[in-house]
Amino acid sequence: MPEAMLLLAVFVAAYVGFAALAMSQDRHWHHVGGGRHCPRRTSLVLRCAGWALLFAALVLALVRDGASFGSLLWATVITVGALCVVATLSWRAHWLRPAARLLQHLG
């Protein structure tokens, strides 16, 4: 059971990490309901969070499966996560709207 949870955690970290990185780009920030340009501070916060989450995904994968399987799992799951972010942006962009709105309020 913990294995399934860890796998899910790796995927969620990868997905949210890439979502953050995507939203830090003007084009996608605009697409999810933020302004025309992603404010510099927000973009910085998003990018740091994004990279941190991708790193967290790596740690989780290594914890779950050790060095060799873990690195393989991470490398492949982040690709899957990134593809899911692309799919979200293309067809379900409104899923990310609350996050954008929240960041606008904070930043």
Partner: peptide, 9 residues
């Protein structure tokens, strides 16, 4: 990098 996440169906 700009087009990293870009897919316009």
């Amino acid at each position: 990098f700009t087009d990293f996440f870009t897919f316009r169906p």
